[in-house]
Design a binder for these strands. Sequence first.
DNA 1: GCAAAATGCGCAATCGATTGCATTTTATTT
DNA 2: AAATAAAATGCAATCGATTGCGCATTTTGC
Lengths: 347, 347
Amino acid sequence: MTFHIDMIKNSEPTIHDIARELEISASTVSRALNDNPRISLKTKEKIKAVAISLGYRPNTLASNLRNKKSNTIGIVVPLINRHFFSSVISGAEDVAFKAGYNVVISQSNDLADKEINIVQSMFSNRVDGLIISIAMQTNTFEHLKIFRKKNIPLVFFDRAVPEIETDKIVVDDYAGGFRVAQHLIDQGYQRIAHLAGTQNLMTYFDRKNGYIEALRKNHIPYDESLVIINTLTSNEGVSAVQQLMSLKNPPDAIFCGNDTTALSAMIYLRDKGIRIPQDIGIVGFSNEPFSKVVSPSISTIAQPGFQMGQKAAELIIRQIETKERTFQTIVLATELIIRESSSRKSF
Amino acid sequence: MTFHIDMIKNSEPTIHDIARELEISASTVSRALNDNPRISLKTKEKIKAVAISLGYRPNTLASNLRNKKSNTIGIVVPLINRHFFSSVISGAEDVAFKAGYNVVISQSNDLADKEINIVQSMFSNRVDGLIISIAMQTNTFEHLKIFRKKNIPLVFFDRAVPEIETDKIVVDDYAGGFRVAQHLIDQGYQRIAHLAGTQNLMTYFDRKNGYIEALRKNHIPYDESLVIINTLTSNEGVSAVQQLMSLKNPPDAIFCGNDTTALSAMIYLRDKGIRIPQDIGIVGFSNEPFSKVVSPSISTIAQPGFQMGQKAAELIIRQIETKERTFQTIVLATELIIRESSSRKSF
DNA sequence: GCAAAATGCGCAATCGATTGCATTTTATTT
DNA sequence: AAATAAAATGCAATCGATTGCGCATTTTGC
């Protein structure tokens, strides 16, 4: 019984196999495949032909190990199936791919433990850089500081960590919050509640402060009982509204920290026979696709997710490909999109 | 001028550094860190302590190279920011992560070239398995057949390739299409149009055939001019409807191949003063989040995305961890969700 | 026509972790 | 205490690609 060579070793062909076939050295093969000028055109052509005929595909693991570079960018988001985040991913993936990088995506589910786990795993996989929007729950940052310590490129988007100095790309949440509140005031609403996210995240912190500032500017007293802080899930939107409506002096408008809670609040109120925007005005945040098409459509703040992702990828690639470390914080403008849920004056 | 050791080599600590510190061999360190029973408890503890003090993190590249295993599962979807696909990713990521696998996600943007590029890159990165829903445009499958040839685990979800034998997890699109059409007939619609996706994809092919079969069963003649095939983008939804409505005998209902086109069609018709569902009934497919909250809400077919992702991950892990190759095709049931856009009888 | 320069290629070490086999150390038995 | 068994650890090759250095061979210059 005889075996053909191909049957004995069923593993992938390597540069050594190509070298053996042509009776040359593996170094030459490696150089040829990388278009090194030290190899003659004739040899290169022969080598490439054999590579194709053997179905050779380079083992990037070996290459990465040797080069101490993985050509991979890690992206960590709280939740993949949030339109804003998946848009950011799309944008980043787009730029990274064109620049020759692979992208590894993971979601933290807004859990600190999972985030730490993911980030460490990406580190072990030697990603060339990490783009991250931190989880709501995260309140220690050692797993991220290590990237700075080891000088591994790191870029925050949307949810950044103030105490870590690196490139950041965020939206102007303060202005966003301000504009929402001002808009509601302009529409004649008087008691404006705010459903805020966890305050350890600058995004939610800033939105709230923008809101407070708008009240102040308009000489509306700030009432703490009108501000509820939670993690902004659909269910929490409902319970927050329940709490607000049971106040002796309930609000006539609610600035919700995101569109998800805006929607759940709206549905709850509608079921209670409360009219929107006539009885209560609602504004969300993030411009999720559904906010445009629900009835009534939800006023909200648009964040340029795709663009943010593109920019984040550009920044990380700059960090990767230059040694220079002059960090910048890019603040993207937001846009207030006025829709039905807060347009009382048209009634 | 003297340098401290730490300053000379600023690279990551390796098992050799740990070994040197303790004056033992790297083999022992490797075994200790992997809890090999051949190493005494005492030594293990010493080694682990040093590992921590040095901030050691294993280099998975090296490990993967040696083990010919990357502990990574690749996932390729047409578009990340489609709720259905991101749900599948979520589900798969969930299962994979718990089983100790990393997940690499990429999107093909429904382009064949990009898909080929991605898949080859994942192959070069030696993913342990590939979960994929193919791009609309893809019509050659060599880049996927190679996985089967080389016996690398491969699982299709939703959009599978009939000619490649491997695990597949799909929904019953035929039944889905049938049910939609039957429902529209039950609601008294007579001329039911169908906006179909590219027919090289079984999903869209089956949906159309289910629709045709329902017509046949109900003795409704099949009119080809009522079936429009395109790539189901928002814009194409509009132009398809324009085309349909300009027929001498326009339809009174449209079964749209996805929710995106259902929505754009609906908005177009509404702007033309056509009432839904009274004048025209609309049904979509996929149960995107917005379909529930738009007005009128869109009847659609729910596909269990998260569950599909979980199942896909289970299948790929089974392939990875067992040599056995008995493939199965899992067909998940779909659910017809009847909402306002097709509920003519309630008016 | 011959030294000098340029060209083409190979040797062997390297990246960091793993593992079969060998060797040393410790424990047990007689 | 010697002999044997058992336990603990080390040696060296391996995974596949890359690259500094060096050796031939060819080309160029005068």
